[in-house]
Design a protein around this nucleic acid. Structure first.
Lengths: 310, 310
DNA sequence: CATCTCGATACCTTTTCGGTAAGATCTGCC
DNA sequence: GGCAGATCTTACCGAAAAGGTATCGAGATG
């Protein structure tokens, strides 16, 4: 069987006349006769009764007409869906985020993506940095969001946002009442760090800041993610350095304070990671949106060019 | 697009390798390459990423693979359903019956048909004889059941059953108690006749019997169908001649009596009517079942060869 | 009975499909 | 680093299939 034969059959069935059907198909009549005969031979069924007035569908022909129309509409649908998938307007986007990346900019990016590509199903997976890299290579996800990324073979990164760092302080804490807070002021106070697992991470960065400023931090506790860290701050475990987007986390008993006289490079990047050479148009659409958002993002604080202390 | 291309595409997608796919399709590799290229060109979409290890479906390719499998299964279904329709094992049978034909043999025939052809939907229409003939010509029905049919242009008949005639008598009626009942005994009693409309009908036949036996019947009432007639008999309107199959109608206060010394041709035929030249295999199936049933049918009475009165 | 309509058949031309041979590119191995 | 192997692509040729023209045959029509 052949789609041509199906198209021809429908024309003949609808016109009930080979000559007219041939005209409609822009071919001459004899080849059409032959195609119909071949179709009947292949199915082993008489589809038309030949009358002196033309062609009249049999019951089997009527059945085949119905199915033929189904086939044609399915093919139309297949074509359209494939083309839309090719343009990235239809399909599925598997994205991994780390625990506290649900804050602020990432939901905004994903919301914009879903609005622009309503027929792309966005599936969110929660994964650590290491899990994201593995999942990327196994193609279980198309993109991941993370911070503190070292350049890696086969993985590309795209900057989403650069965030300044704030200090989360319990409301009654001595530091909460100071007017201007300098980085060195942290020295005397226990500090909560995150995330555990997957070094180098933000923890190493914070320790490095402290050493650069000339002191060793007193580590109160290491926890898995920012949300837990801020919760511990609320309970009085100590203070904690968090990306500015964490201010979306309004925790009773916790206030966020900007710091002056900060060490150099006192900010963190949030990036999107994906496979090098991934030409998926859906990924391209996501990156495009990320690019649009990046210009708008740093609103809690300037993109923090390393501030020399006065 | 072409079913060949779809078949080829599925093979390549499943093998992820043009060479192996070509082997599976029993063609050489270059034509396969070309068909895939043509398919991609026609869709305007890249379906595969060419890697040094083989062919890897893109997201669009994945989408098309899914649709391609749907298309193939739909075509398989179309083929099978059409073939079954061609053999009369799938489709629809529109049958017309007259009011009281629901008795006895016709339900049995239709039940047997539905058992043998479970995928043929049987649709029953209630029509008078005239309506049946019109519906047949307009192809609204495939077959009808009726009695007393005159030969007609374009209509074929097939005998379903030949039934003897019985006399329906009210329980307390003088005739109900007689030991042997002869046809002439009817003479003194009012008679209920059916069906009205569409002469010549059973009514004329009964009147003819009476005249042949040498008397004019006293007509109590003419009604539309046998069921009504028997109901009137129960109410004391008179007696009534009914086909033997009417004994399925067990009406309180009505008894059925056989008659002796009957006129010649004292029976009625029940026939199936259909269009001359209708080659529908479903109709053929119905006629086949009717033929099988006819041999079994006359069980209330012998097929009633005209009995010469002694 | 001549004529018209419609589908089927015969025969030829053109298109398309599949096969063979050779090219280009990347991987992996010694 | 160069060479063998695998894989897809390109080029060209013969074979199969599709379409076109001319004609036939059967049934309807005036």
């Amino acid at each position: 069987m052949d789609l041509r034969q199906i198209r021809y059959f429908v024309a003949v069935a609808e016109e009930a006349n080979i000559g007219r059907a041939a005209a409609r198909l822009h071919i001459s009549q004899p080849p059409l006769t032959r195609q119909i005969q071949q179709l009947e031979a292949e199915l082993g069924v008489t589809l038309f009764n030949r009358t002196p007035r033309g062609m009249e569908t049999t019951a089997a022909g009527e059945m085949f007409l119905e199915e033929a129309r189904n086939i044609r509409s399915l093919i139309e649908q297949a074509t359209e869906r494939t083309q839309r998938a090719g343009q990235g307007r239809l399909g599925r986007l598997d994205v991994a985020i780390f625990g506290s990346a649900i804050l602020d900019v990432i939901p905004k990016v994903l919301l914009a993506f879903r609005t622009r590509y309503p027929d792309v199903k966005v599936v969110l997976h929660t994964m650590t940095k290491a899990e994201q890299l593995e999942a990327l290579q196994q193609k279980r996800i198309t993109a991941g969001f993370n911070r503190m990324l070292a350049p890696l073979e086969g993985i590309e990164t795209r900057l989403v946002a650069t965030e300044s760092l704030l200090l989360a302080v319990p409301a009654g804490h001595p530091l909460a009442s100071k007017e201007t807070l300098r980085f060195r002021d942290i020295e005397a106070h226990p500090i909560v760090l995150f995330p555990t697992g997957g070094r180098p991470s933000f923890i190493d960065r914070v320790i490095h800041y402290c050493q650069e400023s000339g002191f060793e931090p007193e580590i109160s506790q290491e926890v898995g993610d920012a949300v837990t860290a801020v919760a511990l701050v609320a309970s009085g475990f100590g203070v904690c350095l968090v990306p500015s987007s964490a201010t979306t986390l309004r925790f009773p008993g916790v206030v966020y304070r900007e710091l002056a006289e900060v060490p150099s490079g006192f900010f963190v990047d949030l990036s999107c990671i994906y496979r090098t050479g991934d030409r998926s148009p859906i990924l391209a659409g996501l990156l495009e949106i990320i690019d649009e958002f990046r210009e708008v993002v740093p609103r809690h604080q300037n993109p923090s060019p390393p501030q020399p202390s006065p």
